[in-house]
């Protein structure tokens, strides 16, 4: 049985930049638990020495030549911007210290 705590669900939500309302959080715990309980059936599968499949294709890495195309017109690049200034996108003020990377 997967036992997920409310705290874990909230941590995962925070990683995904989502907030859960009080009622949603309880519900999400139950739903995730049910899904992970179901997924637990994989535990019984013997995968000793089985390589993982990330891609079904046995391809050699396709590569492109290093030639630069024209840039997208700035007006096209910015056309969908919720907020812009000149040709820059604008977001609420970022404080230096909340560096994420």
């Amino acid at each position: 049985m997967a036992r997920i705590s409310r705290q874990e669900v909230e941590h995962v939500a925070a990683l995904a930049r989502l907030v859960l309302e009080e009622s949603e959080a309880e519900r999400a715990v139950g739903e995730l638990e049910a899904l992970l309980d179901y997924a637990a059936l994989l535990e019984s599968v013997d995968t000793e020495g089985v390589p993982p499949t990330s891609h079904v294709l046995a391809l050699a890495t396709p590569m492109r030549d290093d030639t630069a195309s024209e840039s997208l017109e700035p007006e096209s690049a910015l056309a969908n911007a919720p907020e812009r200034e000149g040709s820059a996108f604008v977001v609420p003020r970022v404080i230096d210290d909340e560096d994420a990377g």
């Binding site: 997924a39 535990e43 599968v45 995968t47 089985v50 390589p51 993982p52 499949t53 990330s54």
Partner: peptide, 14 residues
């Protein structure tokens, strides 16, 4: 436990 395991099982399914 979940992601890598599922990728391995994916190999078995193939």
């Amino acid at each position: 436990a979940y992601y890598r395991k599922a990728q391995q099982v994916r190999t078995l399914l193939r």
